Amino acid sequence: MDGSSSVDILISEVGPRDGLQSISTILDADRKCQWIQAEAAAGVREIEVGSFVSPKLLPQLADTAEVVAFARQIPGLTVAVLVPNLRGALGALAAGAHKLTLPLSVSETHSLKNVNRTHLQMLDEARGIAAAIRELPATDRPKFEGGLSTAFGCTLEGQISERKVVELAVALIEAGCDEVGLSDTTGYGNPRQVKALTQAIWREIGEERLTGIHLHNTRGQGLANVMAALDVGLTTIDASLGGMGGCPFAPGASGNIVTEDLVYLLEAMGLRTGIDLNQLLAVRRKVDQWLPAKDMHGFVAHAGLPRGFSSPTLTPGAGNPATAQ
C-alpha cells in the first residue's frame, strides 16, 4: 500500500460498505464517490468501497463496480471490497480492486444465514478465488484476505471455540488467502479475547498473516478492544465514519467503532494515522446531511477537539473545536 510506511497504525474505513449495507436509504454512486474522495483527501489510505454481492440482496451496493473504477483513480488509496463468493470475486477482479475480503463466519449457523454456505463450501470458494487471482499477472494481483467473522461470539450460536477460529484461519491460508483478519461481527469481544485469539493464530500461521481486526461497539467494548489490539501488536484497524454499520444477518449487531474517535485516540497517544481529523469531521458532516434518517455515533464530533490539540499528523494548535452540524 502506498505510503503505509509513514503511519504507525493503518485505519481502514469501511463505512461505504459496512456502514451502508444495513440501511434502507440508497446513497447514489456520485455521493459515494464524493465521500471516498473526501476521506482520501483527509489522509485515509484504505477504504472498503463496497461489496460484489447480488443487488437483489443489497441494492445499496449495486453500483460497487462503478465506485471501484472511480476510487482506483485516487493516488495512494488502497481500494478494498467484500466478496461473498467466487462470482463476486470475479466481478471485483474485473473492476480492479486492490484488496478482496472473503467473509468466513466461524459460526456455521451465521455463515448459512449470511452467505448461504457451509465452512467447506466457503473454503472451496476461497480456493477458486485464489486460483483466479493466480491467473493474473503478478503486478495486477490484489491482496486476498479471509475474514474470520463472528470470531468472538455469535448471536445465533453463542460462544465460539478458540480452537475453531484457529483451525479456520489455518484452512483459509491453505486455501490460498494471503492473510486473515479477525472480525467481532456481533460486538461480543473483550480485550482478553483479542490478545488470546491473535496470539493463538500467530502461533499457527505467523504474525505477517494476521495484522488487522474489525471491531464493533455493540456493547461498548470497541475502543477497549482497540487498546488490546495495539498492545498485542496488530497494525490495521477497521472503523466506520460515524460508527455506521452492522451485519444485517446477525441480530442486534449494530455499530462499528467510530473512525473519528479512533483517529483521535491514536493521535492523542502519539501514534501516526496520517489522517487530518478536522478534515475527517467535515466529511462526517457532509455524509450526515446525505443520510438524515441515520443516527451517527461518536464523541469527538460532538465534543470537539481539545484546545491546542496536536498530534503526529496535525500541526500544533490546528485542532480547534469542530462540532457536528
Score class of each variant (00 low, 15 high):
13 E>S: 07
14 V>S: 10
24 S>W: 01
27 L>I: 07
28 D>H: 11
32 K>P: 04
36 I>K: 05
40 A>Q: 09
42 A>C: 12
45 R>Q: 11
46 E>K: 05
51 S>C: 15
51 S>N: 15
52 F>H: 08
53 V>A: 14
54 S>H: 14
57 L>A: 06
63 D>Y: 00
67 V>M: 03
68 V>S: 14
71 A>E: 05
79 V>Q: 03
80 A>F: 06
82 L>G: 11
82 L>D: 12
84 P>Y: 06
87 R>W: 11
89 A>I: 08
89 A>D: 14
90 L>P: 10
93 L>Y: 08
93 L>K: 11
98 H>D: 14
102 L>D: 02
108 E>T: 04
109 T>Q: 14
110 H>M: 04
113 K>M: 08
116 N>A: 13
116 N>I: 00
117 R>T: 06
119 H>W: 08
123 L>W: 06
123 L>E: 09
124 D>G: 10
127 R>G: 14
130 A>Q: 15
131 A>N: 15
131 A>H: 15
139 T>V: 00
145 E>A: 07
146 G>N: 04
147 G>P: 11
149 S>P: 07
151 A>C: 01
155 T>D: 07
157 E>Y: 13
158 G>A: 12
160 I>V: 11
164 K>L: 12
164 K>M: 13
164 K>W: 12
165 V>P: 05
168 L>V: 10
170 V>R: 12
175 A>M: 02
175 A>L: 00
177 C>A: 12
182 L>T: 05
183 S>L: 06
183 S>I: 08
184 D>L: 06
185 T>L: 06
188 Y>C: 11
189 G>F: 06
189 G>N: 05
197 L>Y: 14
200 A>R: 14
208 E>F: 07
210 L>D: 07
212 G>F: 15
220 G>Y: 03
221 Q>S: 10
227 M>P: 14
231 D>W: 15
233 G>A: 01
233 G>V: 01
233 G>E: 07
239 A>Y: 03
240 S>G: 04
242 G>C: 03
242 G>P: 04
242 G>A: 01
249 F>Y: 15
250 A>Q: 06
251 P>K: 12
251 P>A: 13
252 G>D: 07
252 G>A: 05
253 A>E: 05
254 S>E: 15
258 V>T: 09
265 L>M: 15
266 L>W: 11
270 G>T: 13
271 L>H: 15
271 L>C: 14
272 R>P: 04
274 G>R: 10
277 L>R: 06
281 L>Q: 09
283 V>K: 04
293 A>Q: 15
294 K>G: 00
294 K>C: 04
297 H>P: 02
299 F>C: 07
299 F>M: 09
305 L>C: 01
308 G>S: 02
309 F>C: 02
313 T>G: 03
314 L>C: 04
321 P>A: 07
322 A>Q: 08
322 A>D: 08
324 A>H: 11
324 A>E: 13
324 A>D: 13
